[in-house]
């Protein structure tokens, strides 16, 4: 075989591999769209987006997605409320206070948090965190938004801390010098100069963490319940979009029915949410990169 032909074949194979991933993505979006369109022929999109009852599996069917969205946003909000302060503090500590050697050890260790199987986290939330929280909140239900929210927050700490640390590290050293030269303490330098200067990078890290939390399935499926309620009370059972999809997929809902199609309606809602968030973070990132050139 000639050398040139060989090269051409290799190139085609590589291009094919790249194409497979793109085609898969397009395929998923298409299937989501087609099935969702089928769903929206039977249910009005206005009812879907504004209804506060989600009971497609009951005799008295309602298709308002808001309870699932509220459940998703509630757990995500709790997760971010945990991950942002802790993650940012860790980032500032590693970047400005910790010796380089310690930083080199701690950063990869923290990232281990993100690779613990989520089913372990889910179990941890249900069996350990919820009973623990009950000591302080006796009215807490066995399934609730609070416990999986907190555990999810712990899981996404490395998203915030690692990317924020990178952003802090990218702040030009001249700004640090300027700040110290003015008589700032480390704390003032970190929070008045470095964090604001790295704010776009930090925002990106938080958005990615949010989008990870929104898409997280196992923890909430195990510990948050299967009870779609339009509520922002973190102590009662709720259901997230992802948990609903798990519930229906693992149940025995016949294919082609409207109940089956709800999976895709919920799926596309989830997709749109994370897609928008990822695009916002991409947009912020590209603007941010221009700033220090």
């Amino acid at each position: 075989m000639s050398r040139k032909l060989k090269e051409q074949i290799i190139e085609k194979v590589l291009a094919f591999c790249a194409l497979v991933t793109i085609l898969t993505t397009i395929g998923i979006v298409l299937i989501l769209l087609v099935e969702a369109v089928g769903f929206f022929q039977e249910v009005s999109i206005v009812d879907f987006l504004t209804g506060t009852e989600w009971t497609p599996l009951f005799a008295d069917k309602s298709y308002g997605i808001l309870p699932l969205i509220s459940g998703t946003l509630l757990t995500t909000f709790i997760a971010i409320a945990v991950a942002l302060p802790i993650g940012l503090t860790i980032a500032v500590y590693l970047n400005e206070y910790a010796p380089r050697k310690l930083q080199k050890v701690v950063k990869p260790l923290l990232e281990v948090l993100a690779v613990v199987p989520t089913v372990v986290y889910g179990f941890f939330a249900l069996m350990i965190v919820t009973p623990f929280l009950k000591i302080f909140i006796p009215d807490l239900s066995g399934f609730n938004a609070l416990s999986p929210g907190i555990v999810m927050g712990i899981m996404i700490i490395p998203f915030v801390s690692s990317l924020s640390e990178d952003a802090l590290d990218a702040v030009p050293d001249s700004l640090r010098q300027a700040s110290y030269g003015m008589g700032s303490t480390k704390f003032q330098t970190a929070f008045r100069v470095l964090v604001p200067a790295a704010s776009s990078g930090i925002v990106v890290s938080v958005i990615l963490a949010i989008s990870r939390a929104i898409g997280e399935t196992m923890i909430v499926a195990i510990a948050a319940g299967q009870n779609p309620q339009f509520t922002f009370d973190p102590t009662v059972p709720i259901e997230t979009i992802t948990a609903y999809i798990v519930q229906v997929s693992s149940g025995d809902v016949p294919q082609g029915t409207i109940a089956y199609k709800t999976i895709f309606a919920a799926g596309i809602t989830l997709f749109v949410l994370t897609f928008i968030l990822n695009n916002i973070s991409y947009w912020i990132k590209s603007r941010y990169q221009e700033k220090y050139e």
Partner: peptide
């Protein structure tokens, strides 16, 4: 040290204003 640097100001080689 912080108090010292308030009395002894410094201007650097490359202009380094804060992004404010």
């Amino acid at each position: 040290v912080e108090e010292l640097r308030k009395i002894v100001g410094m201007v650097f080689q490359k202009p380094n204003p804060f992004p404010k």
